[in-house]
Each structure stands twice: as C-alpha cells, then as structure tokens.
Simulated assay, not measured.
Amino acid sequence: MSLTALIDRAFTPAAESVRAGNIPGAVLGIVTADGERAVQWTGYAQIEPERELVSRETWFDLASLTKVIFTTTRILQLVEAGRIALDDPLVTVIPDLRQYDMNAAERRLTFRQCLAHQTHLPAVEPLYTYGQDPNTLRAFILQRVWQSGPPVYSDINFMLLGIAIERITGQALIDQPLPERFSFRPDPKLCAATEKDTWRGRVVRGEVHDENAFALGGASGHAGLFGTIDGVLDFAHSLLDGSALSPVSIKAIRTRESEKRTVGWEGFHPGWHGGDSCSPDTIGHTGFTGTGLWVDFERGLAWSLLTNRVHPSRHKDSGILSLRRATGDQVIALFDRTERL
C-alpha cells in the first residue's frame, strides 16, 4: 500500500466528522523518516460569514503547537548555542522576574521546569481582561504573585519562556525569524477562520484566536504561530531525521521529565490524544483550535491533523479527542500493515 493510498483510508474519521457537521474542515498529513509524505483534505476553511473551501495551502492557527514548533525548539537551539542551560533559572535572562521579592518561588524556576510543565504556576489566567497594552501585560506576568499549586499544563510557563526568548535575542516574538510556511503575521485571506469572538466582535481569521496571545501583541510563547500542513510536516520530518536539533536536544524531547511530559512535549500514555497504537517512543501535542502533531520515533513516522474545530464557536462538542485518537490508530494500523507487505 502506498502512502497516498494509506492516507485516503486514514482520513476516513476526519471526512466523516466534516460530513456530520462536527468540524468545518480538516487536513491530514503524514510523513516518514525518509521524507515520503501524503496529504488529504476536505471541508471548509470558513463557513461564516461566507463559505470557503479548505485546501492543502490553507494556513491554520496552530494554537498550542506554538509551544513545541516554535518555543521549545527555539529554547533548545539557544541551549545548543551556549546562550543558556536547561537548568538555568529564568532570572539569568529575566532578572526583573518578581523583582520585589528575592525569595519568590518564580525566581527559582528553570527553563527545564517551564518546558516540562513542572512548576507551581496555574494553567491559565484571563490576562486579556486586564487590558491590551502588551508591555504592561508582560510586566504584569513578571510581577504577578501567582497562586501556588501542583504542577499542571500551564500557558503561563510558556509565556515566561517567550519573554525569555525576547530578552536573549533582543527581538519581539512576532518579529522572530521562522521557517518557510510558518508565520506570526499570515495573510488572513489564506487562513482558516476560527471563532466568532464576542470579545472582538467578529469572526477571527488570520489573527491569533487565543485572547491572551492577541492582547500580548499577536504572538506569545504559548500561542500565535500559524502554518500550513506542509510546514508542520517539514518540521516533523526535521525531528525524525535529526536536522532540527542536536542529538542531545532530540534526546531531551524524547525523555520523560514526569509521567506524561518530556521537555516541551507530551509523551505517549494510554488514553492520550494520539491513540493507543503509538509506540512508547512517541511524542505529541495539540492546539485548542483543533490542531495536533504526533511523532513516532520508533516507526519513523509522523502525522498532523489540522482542523478549525472552534469555528464558528468553541461552545459545542466537536468530538475532537475521539477524532484525534481514531485518526492516530488508523494511521498506525495502516502504516504497520504496509510495512509488513
């Protein structure tokens, strides 16, 4: 079975979800370690205010895939360049973090802890409700007395990492250089629409869906990156062939820092979003808008499912978790069958 025939069958759950009206559109891409790839798509990039078809060239708001494709990768590249070490505290580059309390817990947080979500910081905070001046909001993030709690998956961790990247490079995140087919400033006409947002009073298209990232200027360490399916597959292939990062960094993103987390990524565990057929040596991540990427190093296989499941509203059951799991199980079952032929 060719990869093209494989993806036609693996795409069945997504095509059925679009036909049922659960999601407007979907694009599935698969890539192998030797560079072979296939892409399939169906549905709409936008249904309100006008219907527009999705295509292979549609740009998606990648949401929290920003955390792994951009932020984690950039931090590890800075480690490789000797600018920082993973176990350095953030205050080595953000000395004004909680600057009015030298004993504050935030001043002891390390890059590794933030990347692996092993901090006391909360999952999320509605920062956008405090105003829309990016510099003031950054200052608020740095000086806020954050409520302490057990380690959770936290956007705040990656907001801090984004600020660290800005301090080290001297360049705002929205102006950072990016690989081809990625952007913090995409052409709205090329993008899949996300939510009809009551806060902004419009259908969001070509601007980041995440309210906090929008208020922070359009790009943050946790969200803001846009990309096409081929951009995401290019990135996945660069992890599989080792060209994106050094062997030490690749090992870091594949090694558990906790039961479910590696440096930046989530590792395979029963019941996770990538399906139960993944090898133990699989990492993945999802985005709130309906995006996802999984990399199975043991098989030399990666796949990405991009949807605009929050369009026109997040307040519905899109069935995205079951769709992601069904897609992953289909991809792997068909790939394994192909390998045995």
Rank of each mutant, 00 (worst) to 15 (best):
Q330R: 12
V31H: 12
E48W: 03
V91Y: 05
T92S: 15
D317N: 15
L161I: 06
R108I: 01
L109G: 03
P126N: 01
L6I: 13
D281M: 12
R299Y: 05
G217T: 01
S249H: 13
G292I: 06
S304K: 05
L190V: 09
P312E: 01
G271P: 11
Q171P: 00
D8W: 08
A192W: 08
I332K: 05
W303H: 12
H285T: 04
G43F: 06
H269Q: 12
T307G: 15
R112D: 10
N308G: 14
W41E: 12
R144S: 11
N157R: 00
L115N: 00
H269M: 06
A81Y: 10
A223F: 02
K251G: 12
A20R: 12
Q176N: 09
R299V: 04
N212K: 02
T110H: 07
T169Q: 02
D241F: 14
L3S: 11
E36T: 14
P151Y: 04
G284P: 15
R144H: 15
G206H: 11
T66I: 02
V91Q: 04
Q132Y: 11
T194R: 13
T286A: 04
P188V: 07
I141D: 02
I283N: 09
I250G: 11
L173R: 04
A14G: 11
L239A: 09
G35V: 05
N22L: 15
V295F: 09
F297C: 06
P13C: 00
P186F: 02
A333Y: 03
N103C: 12
R314L: 08
S318D: 13
N103W: 08
S148I: 10
A104E: 00
L173A: 11
R98A: 15
P270Y: 13
V91E: 07
I23M: 09
N212L: 00
S64M: 03
Q99L: 04
E195Y: 07
G206A: 12
L240C: 08
A326Q: 15
L334D: 03
P151V: 01
I7L: 09
I156T: 00
Q143F: 03
N22F: 09
L323F: 06
F11P: 14
R144Q: 14
I250F: 15
R181V: 00
A326H: 09
P134W: 01
K260P: 15
E339T: 13
L334P: 09
I283E: 06
A223E: 05
L142R: 11
A14H: 04
L216A: 08
V18M: 10
L245Y: 13
D276G: 14
H285V: 00
V54H: 05
L28Q: 08
V204G: 12
